[in-house]
Design a protein around this nucleic acid. Structure first.
Lengths: 205, 205
DNA sequence: AAATAGTTTAACTTTATGGTTAACATGGAA
DNA sequence: TTCCATGTTAACCATAAAGTTAAACTATTT
């Protein structure tokens, strides 16, 4: 069954990821993951040795997929506002596709913070583009093209308005009685709104 | 030892809360909570019957402390910008005092979402002030005093810029090499910056 | 078709965990 | 002092969960 390997392994990874995200590492059950993946529990150990290992594998794969994608946006050279627009687009699209990402990251941060930060540092090659993005902001301020503001704050503002709604989605949707599709619609609406918001707050009058 | 009760009970609640926040409900261990609180495991059951019950008690107490405080800011009548400033102040101060709140909420949302939303709904009496805040925004737009923008987006923008940095604090502090106190400083700096940001983005030119 | 490597299963073992119990301690009221 | 309520402990139990094993099954190679 040489070619079912991938499918079984893939199946395990997907199912396990859902369980880890939903219940957290400690509350996720190997038996339930196996049941849900339609396989025997021993298979989990056959493919991944232990729960800890399976989890780690998922973290690695998620980061290896996510970070290049999220940081690519920072790499694009161009006008400052083009870069900003690029970043907003990338984040919103990624988060619409994978709405469980914030929960995954938060769960990591609260339960396995040290190790998660370690994994991030290992991938710090993705980080320089962020620095260059901040540098460009500083440059345009120096050149008197946009308002003076600590680039870190501007950076935080951009990411905040883009990512935060996805984090509080469940509470938001309950309190304001939004359906999943209505929420998605609202997030797509947000792209130009955030751009407009940022533009009018940093361009010189 | 009639007057140690409170102390023991308090000790349990505090310690347990830390564990639940850090590890999540499923991964938190009664034995470790007991050890950490310096008491016998049986005491946990003596005071709170079961793990589930202890947890529930903590959720209830946290919400009963947090929601009135957070929503009080929305209740304050006044000029729109005064209300906004009030909200930002309240959130930043609360989050500086209790930086684990976002993790607590996120852990709830990913692991006990249904029940958490239930508890929120039970306390929905706090919610009307938010509606009145949104209404005031809409009113000022109608009156031509500020730019036209969907109040929901404006509301999201305010909360985003205020709360998001606290959520990503661990990642942020690592990547930008900020200490805890430097981060706190940055957050205090943010108050006027967020205000300025919002003002210039919604006031008419 | 025999051999081999890789895959899957049911049954089992071990360990950790939430919860219980019964005995013991302590401080105040009678 | 004696008695009682409250608080506290160590030892125990039942169960659920992670992890193991040995046998069976499947596909590929020879």
């Amino acid at each position: 069954m040489v070619n079912m390997e991938k499918t079984t392994e893939q199946m395990i990874l997907e199912t396990a990821r859902n369980h880890f995200v939903q219940y957290g590492y400690g509350a996720a059950r190997m038996q339930e993951i196996a049941d849900d993946a339609g396989i025997n529990k021993a298979m989990l150990h056959y493919y991944f040795r232990s729960k800890e290992n399976l989890y780690h594998e998922i973290v690695i794969r998620t980061l290896d997929y996510l970070l290049p994608r999220l940081f690519k946006a920072f790499k694009q050279e161009g006008l400052l506002f083009e870069r900003i627009e690029n970043i907003i687009d990338t984040y919103i699209e990624t988060l619409i596709e994978q709405p469980d990402i914030p929960f995954f990251v938060m769960s990591e941060l609260s339960q396995k913070r040290e190790r998660f930060i370690e994994e991030l540092k290992k991938r710090s090659k993705h980080f320089p583009p962020v620095q260059s993005f901040l540098a460009q902001m500083a440059q345009e301020m120096q050149a008197g093209k946009i308002k003076q503001i600590n680039p870190i704050h501007l950076f935080l503002n951009i990411l905040s308005m883009t990512v935060f709604p996805f984090i509080v989605k469940p509470v938001f949707c309950t309190l304001f009685e939004f359906s999943d599709t209505a929420f998605e619609q609202l997030m797509l609406e947000r792209k130009p709104i955030i751009m407009e918001f940022i533009k009018s707050s940093i361009e010189l009058k």
